[in-house]
């Protein structure tokens, strides 16, 4: 297998909730990310899925060092970057970039498209104006945009075009890894397919790695090699995307996949809507034991007491004691 490019080691991100005007004291803690370990290999696309509030975006931000971690380590390209200071991160930032969900929010409305794409080049590379212009034109071309758009303003572009600009900007410094935080959720259906194909092409042309944060499981199945399923700040199951989509093991992964509507009215009618009751609990007061136990069908007494660890089952790992204790499953350790 290819070398590990980025790795999160038991990463925790907690946000203190403070009360009091003069001497604020911590009254509670939001455990947004609560012990996530995840690695991304060179050239690999790892999907991160889960409901809102599961901590998937915060995990992506921790990897990018846009968010300081409370505990645990963040590694990138063989380097421990957990404690790097701002200026030390400069070299890392060009190799690890990000595309956000809302293309509107990531384009400065007062900056022409060409300047927006050139901005990372200004920060990171010493180029003449002429070199920069030709690089911008080539980047726009690579994401399927007309070079003439460089002179236009963000409001003159459609949502799909703006998202392509976001991707061009993320590519500007020739990164190794791009964190894609829900890059297609805000786009029209016919545009989503265009952007997914573009991401797939770029990845193969440039040997890129992605951390693809998404809630659309169809898109995840399409783009990813491996997928990690998060629930309330922890990974409950991870493994090859085929295994997880075809035969999910964790009761939460199963429920999440069952909630996805079928694309066939005959099958949809026969099966009906599959509903997982309840909502994701507050990360301020996570349930005891397995965080999923209040919504789980297979719950046993032990689930309420002990927090399950991720155990290796074949090519994947699952955090469910009921499952990993079932004798017919092949368990490796």
């Amino acid at each position: 297998m290819a070398e590990v490019l980025a790795r999160l080691d038991d990463v925790h991100v907690h946000f203190p909730v403070r009360e009091g005007l003069l001497l604020p004291r911590e009254v509670a803690r939001v455990r947004a990310v609560d012990g996530v370990s995840l690695s991304i290999h060179k050239g690999e696309v790892v999907g991160l899925v889960g409901e809102s509030g599961s901590g998937k975006s915060t995990t992506g931000r921790a990897l990018l060092r846009l968010q300081d971690v409370t505990a645990g380590r963040v590694h990138f390209a063989g380097l421990d970057i957990t404690q790097l200071r701002r200026h030390e991160l400069q070299a890392i930032r060009r190799r690890m970039t990000v595309v956000f969900q809302d293309p509107e929010a990531s384009c400065n409305p007062r900056m022409r498209i060409g300047d927006a794409v050139a901005e990372p080049l200004r920060v990171h590379e010493r180029l003449t104006a002429e070199q920069r212009r030709s690089k911008v034109a080539s980047l726009l071309d690579q994401v399927g945009l007309d070079g003439g758009l460089a002179q236009r303003w963000p409001h003159e572009l459609s949502g799909g075009q703006r998202q392509r600009v976001g991707i061009a900007r993320a590519l500007a410094t020739d990164p190794d890894l791009i964190v894609l935080d829900e890059p297609i959720s805000a786009l029209d259906v016919s545009i989503q397919a265009q952007v997914l194909n573009l991401l797939d092409d770029l990845r193969h042309q440039r040997g890129l790695s992605y951390l693809f944060i998404a809630h659309d499981l169809g898109a995840v199945a399409h783009l990813c090699d491996r997928v990690a399923v998060m629930y309330l700040g922890r990974v409950v199951e991870q493994g090859p995307v085929g295994d997880i989509i075809e035969a999910p093991l964790h009761p939460y992964t199963q429920a999440l996949l069952r909630s996805v509507p079928l694309l066939d009215p005959v099958a949809a009618h026969a099966r009906g809507l599959q509903v997982l009751d309840g909502e994701i609990p507050s990360p301020m007061a996570p349930p005891s034991g397995c965080a999923f136990h209040p919504r789980c069908r297979n719950v046993v007494a032990n689930c309420r007491q002990n927090r399950p660890e991720l155990l290796t089952v074949g090519a994947r790992s699952v955090a469910c004691p009921v499952l990993t204790q079932t004798p017919q499953l092949p368990i490796a350790s």
């Binding site: 259906v189 016919s190 989503q192 397919a193 265009q194 997914l196 194909n197 797939d200 659309d216 499981l217 169809g218 898109a219 199945a221 399409h222 995307v241 085929g242 989509i245 996949l257 996805v260 694309l263």
Partner: peptide, 16 residues
Amino acid sequence: SIPSKGQRNQRLHVIA
């Protein structure tokens, strides 16, 4: 053009 979990590693049909 809709990606479904049944069709992995296939190119999606695109409306230009």
